[in-house]
Design a protein around this nucleic acid. Structure first.
Lengths: 123, 123
DNA sequence: CGGATGAGATTACACCTGTAATCGCAAGAG
DNA sequence: CTCTTGCGATTACAGGTGTAATCTCATCCG
């Protein structure tokens, strides 16, 4: 990634990442979370910015473009995670974990999943 | 909190939270992470903004102010955590955990700490 | 008492963000 | 071949942010 993605840009990228295929601006506008009541114009602006950041790739399809992600989701998530855990929890995951546990943001399913992961790591 | 804190504002708040006592603007400027090469003026600006957000409390001390946090760190961290985990991991902690594990951002110590926490939760 | 000092308040300013309207052009409709 | 329409590109604009200089007092030094 050349630059960080803004919140709104993330929403657009999420659409592209989950689509699994190139989409037109209109497609994207339709799939963006409904809570963002964006007009098509807004989506197009965001696409321009994402193009400038080289986060999406335009593929000419006749008179218009099909957009697809130029960067994978994983590295972006990794970046944000590092930033976040670094800033709030001194870079360590365990304090975050402790915090979430206290907040009761963990349910049975999470706990089980994490236990399994831990076993994996231990091997 | 009335509003979200910006990155720079967090740095100021961290100083205040960890100081455990009211500080003057100058004190704060001295304790801010050195990587931020801020002038005193910058710190004062940030303090103004934090006052506007009611995140810090000014206590008149003769001719100047001693600043102390008006909000606790925990709720702020909780807010940011919710935002972060919600946005990137669908609100679930286990995918974040899986991600960090893959990134090898976990060392022995973290793993042990988390195991202990899990046992606590299980009880 | 008068000037220097130092504190907060005010102002500055460029860049980023969210949100959009408008422009200019190319393609399809007739 | 012309008119409409749908697209990307350009422009807009207010509010947030990082970073700071300047202004305005009150006070301490002499």
């Amino acid at each position: 990634m050349e630059k960080r993605l803004s919140d709104a840009e993330w929403d657009v990228m999420e659409v592209l990442w989950s689509a699994g295929q190139p989409l037109t601006a209109t497609d994207i506008a339709e799939r963006v979370p409904a809570t963002r009541e964006w007009t098509l114009a807004t989506v197009k602006s965001l696409l321009s910015r994402l193009l400038a950041k080289r986060a999406v790739k335009p593929n000419k399809d006749g008179r218009r473009f099909l957009y697809s992600p130029a960067i994978a989701r994983e590295p972006c998530v990794a970046d944000e995670s590092r930033r976040f855990v670094g800033r709030l929890f001194g870079g360590r995951l365990s304090p975050l974990f402790a915090h979430m546990a206290e907040e009761e943001a963990l349910d049975e399913e999470d706990i089980a999943a994490i236990e399994t992961l831990l076993k994996e790591l231990r091997k």
